[in-house]
């Protein structure tokens, strides 16, 4: 049964990479069920991330957000800050797609704080970029400018010319 769980996960990932997002989601749901059966929180967390990603490409941003929230909850339980940061980043982007810029900014800010804590300059730069965009969308150009400047500063520091 445990091996079956891993096989479902691998099948889900393969279908995902082939661009078959409906099939990917079906396999990852099977993987999730087996992870729950075993109380395997790490596998459950992976399944939620994979399900969130698949639903982005299915155009179901609302469903993706719910899966990413489960990912975030488990990442906190498992005390995995890198995954927590990634989940916040995914949620920020998903709420941007849902045109809920305030919530997007909330999650991008949470991502920024964790990236700073982890001294992840690349993550910090991305968070600032996203926050700049979110504040433009909210009609707050002064705040957007603050984050755009910070984004520029970090990009120069890490040598990202793009």
């Amino acid at each position: 049964r445990a091996a079956q769980g891993r096989a479902y996960g691998n099948l889900g990932n393969t279908q995902y990479l082939l661009g078959n997002f409906t099939e990917a989601a079906t396999f990852h749901k099977e993987r999730l069920a087996i992870a729950k059966e075993f109380g395997d929180k790490a596998a459950e967390r992976r399944a939620y991330s994979n399900l969130g990603n698949a639903h982005i490409f299915l155009g179901r941003f609302d469903v993706a957000a719910e899966y990413y929230k489960k990912t975030l909850q488990l990442a906190r339980q498992l005390r995995d800050q890198a995954v927590e940061a990634q989940a916040c980043y995914s949620l920020g982007n998903t709420y941007t797609l849902l045109q809920d810029y305030e919530r997007a900014a909330e999650y991008h800010l949470r991502h920024l704080l964790i990236a700073q804590e982890l001294a992840d300059r690349v993550g910090e730069g991305r968070a600032c970029w996203s926050l700049g965009n979110a504040y433009v969308s909210m009609g707050s150009p002064a705040q957007a400018l603050t984050f755009a400047k910070k984004h520029l500063q970090i990009s120069q520091e890490i040598g990202d010319r793009n």
């Binding site: 691998n10 990932n13 490409f57 982007n93 941007t96 797609l97 991305r126």
Partner: peptide
């Protein structure tokens, strides 16, 4: 599903490009 209405947001577009190759391995 909802349409991809915000593809003009570069940061989201970049994230989705990366996401296409992102899988959590067993």
């Amino acid at each position: 599903g909802q349409r991809l209405h915000l593809m003009q947001v570069d940061s989201v577009q970049r994230w989705m490009e990366d996401l296409k190759l992102m899988t959590e391995c067993e």
